[in-house]
Design a protein around this nucleic acid. Sequence first.
DNA 1: TATTGTTATACTCTATAACTATA
DNA 2: TATAGTTATAGAGTATAACAATA
Lengths: 163, 163
Amino acid sequence: MPPHTPSRRHAAPPVDSAEPADAPVDAGALYTQISYNARRAWLSISALSTQRMAVHKLKVPEFSVLSLVGRNPGIISSQLCATLDTLPPNLAGRIISLERRGLIERRPHPQDRRAMSLRLTPEGTKLTAQAEETAARLEEDALAGLTLSERKTLICLLKKVCS
Amino acid sequence: MPPHTPSRRHAAPPVDSAEPADAPVDAGALYTQISYNARRAWLSISALSTQRMAVHKLKVPEFSVLSLVGRNPGIISSQLCATLDTLPPNLAGRIISLERRGLIERRPHPQDRRAMSLRLTPEGTKLTAQAEETAARLEEDALAGLTLSERKTLICLLKKVCS
DNA sequence: TATTGTTATACTCTATAACTATA
DNA sequence: TATAGTTATAGAGTATAACAATA
Protein backbone atom coordinates (compact mmCIF):
# COMPACT_ATOMS: atom_id res chain seq x y z
CA MET A 1 0.00 0.00 0.00
CA PRO A 2 2.21 2.81 -1.23
CA PRO A 3 0.13 6.00 -1.15
CA HIS A 4 -1.56 7.79 1.71
CA THR A 5 -0.88 7.91 5.44
CA PRO A 6 2.30 5.90 5.91
CA SER A 7 1.53 4.32 9.27
CA ARG A 8 2.33 7.30 11.46
CA ARG A 9 0.73 5.83 14.58
CA HIS A 10 1.86 7.57 17.73
CA ALA A 11 3.54 10.44 15.94
CA ALA A 12 3.14 12.15 19.28
CA PRO A 13 3.72 9.97 22.34
CA PRO A 14 0.42 8.82 23.88
CA VAL A 15 0.01 11.03 26.92
CA ASP A 16 -2.25 9.51 29.52
CA SER A 17 -4.58 12.47 29.87
CA ALA A 18 -7.89 13.37 28.33
CA GLU A 19 -8.20 15.47 25.20
CA PRO A 20 -8.94 19.11 25.84
CA ALA A 21 -12.45 19.61 24.58
CA ASP A 22 -11.41 22.31 22.10
CA ALA A 23 -8.49 20.44 20.55
CA PRO A 24 -9.05 19.46 16.92
CA VAL A 25 -9.73 15.77 16.48
CA ASP A 26 -7.11 13.83 14.53
CA ALA A 27 -9.21 11.81 12.14
CA GLY A 28 -6.05 10.24 10.74
CA ALA A 29 -6.50 8.05 7.71
CA LEU A 30 -10.25 8.48 7.96
CA TYR A 31 -10.03 11.91 6.37
CA THR A 32 -8.33 10.54 3.32
CA GLN A 33 -10.61 7.56 2.93
CA ILE A 34 -13.21 7.35 0.23
CA SER A 35 -15.59 5.52 2.53
CA TYR A 36 -15.65 8.28 5.13
CA ASN A 37 -15.83 11.14 2.64
CA ALA A 38 -18.40 9.54 0.37
CA ARG A 39 -20.67 8.99 3.37
CA ARG A 40 -20.36 12.56 4.59
CA ALA A 41 -20.90 14.01 1.13
CA TRP A 42 -23.90 11.82 0.57
CA LEU A 43 -25.38 12.70 3.96
CA SER A 44 -24.99 16.38 3.15
CA ILE A 45 -26.63 16.09 -0.26
CA SER A 46 -29.27 13.70 0.95
CA ALA A 47 -30.40 16.07 3.69
CA LEU A 48 -30.80 18.90 1.20
CA SER A 49 -32.61 16.67 -1.30
CA THR A 50 -35.05 15.41 1.30
CA GLN A 51 -35.84 18.95 2.38
CA ARG A 52 -36.41 20.25 -1.15
CA MET A 53 -38.49 17.31 -2.35
CA ALA A 54 -40.74 17.56 0.69
CA VAL A 55 -42.16 20.72 -0.92
CA HIS A 56 -43.78 18.43 -3.50
CA LYS A 57 -44.68 15.91 -0.79
CA LEU A 58 -42.19 13.54 -2.38
CA LYS A 59 -39.46 11.44 -0.86
CA VAL A 60 -36.21 11.33 -2.80
CA PRO A 61 -36.66 7.72 -4.00
CA GLU A 62 -40.18 8.60 -5.09
CA PHE A 63 -38.86 11.42 -7.22
CA SER A 64 -36.34 9.06 -8.78
CA VAL A 65 -39.15 6.69 -9.72
CA LEU A 66 -41.28 9.46 -11.19
CA SER A 67 -38.37 10.86 -13.18
CA LEU A 68 -37.50 7.47 -14.63
CA VAL A 69 -41.09 6.54 -15.43
CA GLY A 70 -41.58 9.92 -17.07
CA ARG A 71 -38.65 9.42 -19.40
CA ASN A 72 -39.39 5.76 -20.01
CA PRO A 73 -43.12 5.26 -20.39
CA GLY A 74 -43.90 1.55 -20.17
CA ILE A 75 -40.87 0.78 -18.00
CA ILE A 76 -41.28 -2.18 -15.65
CA SER A 77 -40.29 -2.62 -12.01
CA SER A 78 -37.25 -4.77 -12.61
CA GLN A 79 -35.74 -2.05 -14.77
CA LEU A 80 -36.38 0.53 -12.09
CA CYS A 81 -34.75 -1.73 -9.53
CA ALA A 82 -31.60 -2.11 -11.59
CA THR A 83 -31.32 1.58 -12.33
CA LEU A 84 -31.96 2.67 -8.76
CA ASP A 85 -30.06 -0.09 -6.94
CA THR A 86 -33.20 -1.07 -5.12
CA LEU A 87 -34.58 -4.50 -4.29
CA PRO A 88 -38.01 -5.46 -5.66
CA PRO A 89 -39.73 -5.72 -2.25
CA ASN A 90 -38.62 -2.20 -1.40
CA LEU A 91 -39.84 -0.74 -4.67
CA ALA A 92 -43.27 -2.36 -4.59
CA GLY A 93 -44.60 -0.21 -1.78
CA ARG A 94 -43.39 2.99 -3.41
CA ILE A 95 -45.11 2.18 -6.67
CA ILE A 96 -48.37 1.35 -4.95
CA SER A 97 -48.16 4.56 -2.97
CA LEU A 98 -47.55 6.64 -6.10
CA GLU A 99 -50.40 4.87 -7.83
CA ARG A 100 -52.77 5.62 -4.96
CA ARG A 101 -51.81 9.28 -5.19
CA GLY A 102 -52.81 9.22 -8.84
CA LEU A 103 -49.30 10.02 -10.06
CA ILE A 104 -48.50 6.83 -11.94
CA GLU A 105 -50.53 4.21 -13.71
CA ARG A 106 -49.96 0.46 -13.93
CA ARG A 107 -51.09 -1.47 -16.96
CA PRO A 108 -50.53 -5.10 -17.88
CA HIS A 109 -47.45 -5.36 -20.06
CA PRO A 110 -48.45 -6.25 -23.63
CA GLN A 111 -45.60 -8.70 -24.26
CA ASP A 112 -45.09 -10.12 -20.77
CA ARG A 113 -48.14 -10.86 -18.67
CA ARG A 114 -46.04 -11.20 -15.52
CA ALA A 115 -44.98 -7.57 -15.66
CA MET A 116 -46.79 -4.29 -15.20
CA SER A 117 -45.80 -1.38 -17.41
CA LEU A 118 -45.67 2.00 -15.72
CA ARG A 119 -46.44 5.51 -16.97
CA LEU A 120 -47.18 8.89 -15.49
CA THR A 121 -50.73 10.18 -15.26
CA PRO A 122 -51.32 13.76 -16.44
CA GLU A 123 -51.16 14.83 -12.80
CA GLY A 124 -47.96 12.84 -12.32
CA THR A 125 -46.45 14.47 -15.39
CA LYS A 126 -47.17 17.91 -14.01
CA LEU A 127 -45.74 17.17 -10.58
CA THR A 128 -42.67 15.48 -12.05
CA ALA A 129 -41.93 18.52 -14.19
CA GLN A 130 -42.10 20.75 -11.14
CA ALA A 131 -39.95 18.37 -9.09
CA GLU A 132 -37.36 18.23 -11.84
CA GLU A 133 -37.02 21.97 -11.73
CA THR A 134 -36.52 21.68 -8.00
CA ALA A 135 -33.89 19.03 -8.60
CA ALA A 136 -32.01 21.33 -10.95
CA ARG A 137 -31.96 24.14 -8.42
CA LEU A 138 -30.96 21.67 -5.72
CA GLU A 139 -28.04 20.58 -7.86
CA GLU A 140 -27.00 24.18 -8.24
CA ASP A 141 -27.10 24.78 -4.48
CA ALA A 142 -25.53 21.51 -3.36
CA LEU A 143 -22.56 22.14 -5.63
CA ALA A 144 -22.34 25.88 -5.06
CA GLY A 145 -18.79 25.55 -3.74
CA LEU A 146 -17.57 23.87 -6.91
CA THR A 147 -16.80 25.31 -10.31
CA LEU A 148 -18.64 23.95 -13.31
CA SER A 149 -15.55 22.04 -14.33
CA GLU A 150 -15.18 20.55 -10.86
CA ARG A 151 -18.81 19.43 -10.89
CA LYS A 152 -18.35 17.54 -14.11
CA THR A 153 -15.17 15.95 -12.80
CA LEU A 154 -16.88 14.88 -9.59
CA ILE A 155 -19.80 13.21 -11.35
CA CYS A 156 -17.41 11.50 -13.73
CA LEU A 157 -15.23 10.15 -10.92
CA LEU A 158 -18.23 8.98 -8.90
CA LYS A 159 -19.42 7.01 -11.91
CA LYS A 160 -16.02 5.35 -12.12
CA VAL A 161 -16.26 4.24 -8.51
CA CYS A 162 -19.54 2.48 -9.15
CA SER A 163 -18.29 0.44 -12.07
CA MET B 1 -30.29 27.29 -14.10
CA PRO B 2 -27.81 27.68 -16.96
CA PRO B 3 -25.74 24.46 -17.13
CA HIS B 4 -26.82 20.84 -17.53
CA THR B 5 -29.78 19.19 -19.23
CA PRO B 6 -31.63 22.02 -20.94
CA SER B 7 -35.14 20.70 -20.51
CA ARG B 8 -35.12 18.15 -23.30
CA ARG B 9 -38.31 16.45 -22.20
CA HIS B 10 -39.86 14.33 -24.89
CA ALA B 11 -36.86 14.45 -27.19
CA ALA B 12 -38.45 11.37 -28.71
CA PRO B 13 -42.23 11.40 -29.05
CA PRO B 14 -43.90 9.39 -26.29
CA VAL B 15 -44.98 6.21 -27.98
CA ASP B 16 -47.88 4.51 -26.23
CA SER B 17 -46.26 1.12 -25.98
CA ALA B 18 -44.28 -0.62 -23.30
CA GLU B 19 -40.51 -0.54 -23.22
CA PRO B 20 -38.84 -3.60 -24.64
CA ALA B 21 -37.24 -5.35 -21.69
CA ASP B 22 -33.75 -5.14 -23.18
CA ALA B 23 -33.82 -1.47 -24.14
CA PRO B 24 -31.45 0.73 -22.16
CA VAL B 25 -33.22 2.89 -19.59
CA ASP B 26 -33.01 6.63 -20.16
CA ALA B 27 -32.11 7.91 -16.74
CA GLY B 28 -32.15 11.44 -18.08
CA ALA B 29 -31.01 14.15 -15.71
CA LEU B 30 -30.64 11.56 -12.97
CA TYR B 31 -27.37 10.37 -14.44
CA THR B 32 -25.86 13.82 -14.23
CA GLN B 33 -27.11 14.54 -10.73
CA ILE B 34 -24.82 14.54 -7.76
CA SER B 35 -27.56 13.10 -5.57
CA TYR B 36 -28.03 10.00 -7.70
CA ASN B 37 -24.35 9.39 -8.30
CA ALA B 38 -23.23 10.05 -4.75
CA ARG B 39 -25.76 7.54 -3.50
CA ARG B 40 -24.67 4.85 -5.94
CA ALA B 41 -20.99 5.41 -5.25
CA TRP B 42 -21.59 5.32 -1.53
CA LEU B 43 -23.67 2.15 -1.80
CA SER B 44 -20.91 0.50 -3.77
CA ILE B 45 -18.19 1.47 -1.31
CA SER B 46 -20.36 0.78 1.69
CA ALA B 47 -21.08 -2.78 0.58
CA LEU B 48 -17.37 -3.49 0.16
CA SER B 49 -16.51 -1.87 3.50
CA THR B 50 -19.13 -3.87 5.36
CA GLN B 51 -17.87 -7.09 3.85
CA ARG B 52 -14.23 -6.42 4.65
CA MET B 53 -14.78 -5.20 8.20
CA ALA B 54 -16.89 -8.26 8.99
CA VAL B 55 -13.63 -10.23 8.96
CA HIS B 56 -12.74 -8.43 12.19
CA LYS B 57 -16.31 -8.79 13.47
CA LEU B 58 -16.64 -5.02 13.14
CA LYS B 59 -19.32 -2.89 11.59
CA VAL B 60 -18.12 0.10 9.60
CA PRO B 61 -19.21 2.69 12.18
CA GLU B 62 -17.50 0.64 14.88
CA PHE B 63 -14.27 0.75 12.95
CA SER B 64 -14.60 4.52 12.61
CA VAL B 65 -14.97 4.83 16.38
CA LEU B 66 -11.99 2.60 17.08
CA SER B 67 -9.82 4.47 14.59
CA LEU B 68 -10.68 7.86 16.07
CA VAL B 69 -10.29 6.72 19.68
CA GLY B 70 -6.95 5.16 18.80
CA ARG B 71 -5.61 8.39 17.40
CA ASN B 72 -7.19 10.56 20.06
CA PRO B 73 -6.83 8.89 23.45
CA GLY B 74 -9.13 10.61 25.93
CA ILE B 75 -11.58 11.75 23.25
CA ILE B 76 -15.19 12.15 24.41
CA SER B 77 -18.45 11.11 22.78
CA SER B 78 -19.51 14.56 21.62
CA GLN B 79 -16.29 14.89 19.63
CA LEU B 80 -16.90 11.52 18.03
CA CYS B 81 -20.42 12.56 17.15
CA ALA B 82 -19.26 15.73 15.43
CA THR B 83 -16.53 13.97 13.47
CA LEU B 84 -18.72 11.08 12.41
CA ASP B 85 -21.97 12.97 11.77
CA THR B 86 -23.75 10.77 14.26
CA LEU B 87 -26.30 11.67 16.91
CA PRO B 88 -25.46 10.95 20.56
CA PRO B 89 -28.19 8.33 21.09
CA ASN B 90 -26.90 6.37 18.12
CA LEU B 91 -23.32 6.44 19.31
CA ALA B 92 -24.03 5.39 22.89
CA GLY B 93 -24.93 1.83 22.05
CA ARG B 94 -21.86 1.37 19.89
CA ILE B 95 -19.53 2.55 22.63
CA ILE B 96 -21.12 0.27 25.20
CA SER B 97 -20.86 -2.63 22.78
CA LEU B 98 -17.18 -1.96 22.12
CA GLU B 99 -16.54 -1.65 25.84
CA ARG B 100 -18.24 -4.98 26.51
CA ARG B 101 -16.00 -6.58 23.92
CA GLY B 102 -13.01 -5.25 25.80
CA LEU B 103 -11.86 -3.06 22.92
CA ILE B 104 -12.28 0.38 24.48
CA GLU B 105 -12.20 1.70 28.00
CA ARG B 106 -14.27 4.50 29.54
CA ARG B 107 -12.85 6.61 32.34
CA PRO B 108 -14.29 9.66 34.05
CA HIS B 109 -12.94 12.77 32.34
CA PRO B 110 -10.48 14.57 34.64
CA GLN B 111 -11.68 18.09 33.84
CA ASP B 112 -15.37 17.47 33.14
CA ARG B 113 -17.22 15.06 35.34
CA ARG B 114 -20.13 14.89 32.92
CA ALA B 115 -17.99 13.33 30.23
CA MET B 116 -16.30 9.99 29.82
CA SER B 117 -12.89 9.88 28.17
CA LEU B 118 -12.28 6.99 25.81
CA ARG B 119 -9.18 5.00 24.97
CA LEU B 120 -8.32 1.69 23.38
CA THR B 121 -7.45 -1.31 25.49
CA PRO B 122 -4.36 -3.29 24.44
CA GLU B 123 -6.70 -5.73 22.72
CA GLY B 124 -8.51 -2.85 21.04
CA THR B 125 -5.22 -1.40 19.86
CA LYS B 126 -4.26 -4.68 18.26
CA LEU B 127 -7.59 -5.14 16.50
CA THR B 128 -7.67 -1.53 15.33
CA ALA B 129 -4.22 -1.87 13.79
CA GLN B 130 -5.38 -4.94 11.87
CA ALA B 131 -8.61 -3.24 10.80
CA GLU B 132 -6.69 -0.21 9.59
CA GLU B 133 -4.63 -2.41 7.33
CA THR B 134 -7.85 -3.85 6.00
CA ALA B 135 -9.14 -0.34 5.44
CA ALA B 136 -6.06 0.56 3.43
CA ARG B 137 -6.47 -2.48 1.19
CA LEU B 138 -10.17 -1.75 0.88
CA GLU B 139 -9.33 1.76 -0.28
CA GLU B 140 -7.02 0.34 -2.87
CA ASP B 141 -9.67 -2.03 -4.18
CA ALA B 142 -12.62 0.36 -4.10
CA LEU B 143 -10.68 2.88 -6.16
CA ALA B 144 -8.97 0.39 -8.42
CA GLY B 145 -10.51 2.00 -11.50
CA LEU B 146 -9.05 5.40 -10.69
CA THR B 147 -5.54 6.71 -11.06
CA LEU B 148 -3.75 8.04 -8.00
CA SER B 149 -4.33 11.56 -9.20
CA GLU B 150 -8.03 10.92 -9.74
CA ARG B 151 -8.36 9.49 -6.24
CA LYS B 152 -6.92 12.61 -4.68
CA THR B 153 -9.17 14.79 -6.80
CA LEU B 154 -12.23 12.78 -5.83
CA ILE B 155 -11.56 13.01 -2.10
CA CYS B 156 -10.84 16.72 -2.44
CA LEU B 157 -14.08 17.38 -4.32
CA LEU B 158 -16.13 15.30 -1.89
CA LYS B 159 -14.76 17.38 0.97
CA LYS B 160 -15.83 20.54 -0.85
CA VAL B 161 -19.38 19.22 -1.16
CA CYS B 162 -19.63 18.73 2.59
CA SER B 163 -18.55 22.23 3.52
C1' DT C 1 -36.20 -23.95 -14.49
C1' DA C 2 -35.95 -18.89 -14.35
C1' DT C 3 -38.13 -14.45 -13.89
C1' DT C 4 -41.73 -10.75 -12.36
C1' DG C 5 -43.81 -8.98 -8.73
C1' DT C 6 -45.81 -9.25 -4.16
C1' DT C 7 -46.26 -10.04 0.98
C1' DA C 8 -44.36 -10.65 5.36
C1' DT C 9 -40.72 -9.80 8.15
C1' DA C 10 -36.31 -8.54 10.32
C1' DC C 11 -32.33 -5.82 10.80
C1' DT C 12 -29.79 -1.58 10.57
C1' DC C 13 -29.42 3.27 10.54
C1' DT C 14 -31.25 7.50 11.79
C1' DA C 15 -34.24 10.81 14.43
C1' DT C 16 -36.84 12.81 18.51
C1' DA C 17 -38.16 13.30 23.23
C1' DA C 18 -37.22 12.98 27.97
C1' DC C 19 -34.29 12.41 31.66
C1' DT C 20 -29.73 12.86 34.93
C1' DA C 21 -25.80 14.86 36.20
C1' DT C 22 -22.68 18.45 35.75
C1' DA C 23 -20.77 23.05 33.86
C1' DT D 1 -29.26 28.04 31.15
C1' DA D 2 -26.48 24.98 28.43
C1' DT D 3 -23.96 20.74 27.73
C1' DA D 4 -22.56 15.43 28.12
C1' DG D 5 -24.42 11.34 28.16
C1' DT D 6 -28.10 7.86 28.45
C1' DT D 7 -32.59 5.49 27.62
C1' DA D 8 -36.62 4.57 25.12
C1' DT D 9 -38.82 4.71 20.96
C1' DA D 10 -40.21 5.71 16.31
C1' DG D 11 -39.26 5.93 11.60
C1' DA D 12 -36.72 5.25 7.31
C1' DG D 13 -33.94 2.26 4.41
C1' DT D 14 -32.43 -2.18 3.33
C1' DA D 15 -32.30 -7.35 3.55
C1' DT D 16 -34.00 -12.35 3.06
C1' DA D 17 -37.52 -15.93 2.47
C1' DA D 18 -41.56 -17.58 0.51
C1' DC D 19 -45.17 -17.51 -2.70
C1' DA D 20 -48.18 -17.02 -7.24
C1' DA D 21 -48.26 -16.25 -11.98
C1' DT D 22 -45.98 -16.44 -16.18
C1' DA D 23 -41.88 -17.06 -19.40
